[in-house]
Amino acid sequence: MALPPQLKSIQHHLRTAQEHEKRDPVVAYYCRLYAMQTGMKLDSKTPECRKFLVKLMDQLETMKKELADNDSITQEVVGNAHIENYALKMFLYADNEDRSGRFHKNMIKSFYTSSLLLDVLSVFGELSEENIQHRKYARWKATYIHNCLKNGENPQ
């Protein structure tokens, strides 16, 4: 179903969910939960947004049943650790590539996806100051390196 323009700011979280559907269903589940909660704050009034959010809720409830025996879904504290570990693993991979002077699409995507997953962590509560800094740095680096490569410049 097409994403209504009012819900544009959750499109990358939903795409990350799709990318992880098979690879890591727990990540997919929490990306969709974050998108659901954020979407309801953005706009649950206009008919097309409500329709989209109802479909997303259907998907979440189905996933919940499919993952019923997974601790990361039934216990928030386990889910929180799962997402945080995954986000930081992606961040460290990208940061290592950056420090080694290896700039490429994969590392840009890893920086950006780690920043999206740090957004998702907010479903478990306030982000730590460290995670807020990581998210800011990761998003800035992804944008900076992407623009350098696009303009044929060498990132510093």
Partner: peptide, 27 residues
């Protein structure tokens, strides 16, 4: 129709909120 539409919308919103709360409660 305006008021009917609005009440349908808010009923659906309430339903979404309660489904979300239920989804999270079971975590």
């Amino acid at each position: 129709t305006g008021s009917v539409g609005t009440s349908v919308a808010s009923a659906e919103q309430d339903e979404l909120s309660s489904r979300l709360a239920k989804l999270r409660d079971q975590m």
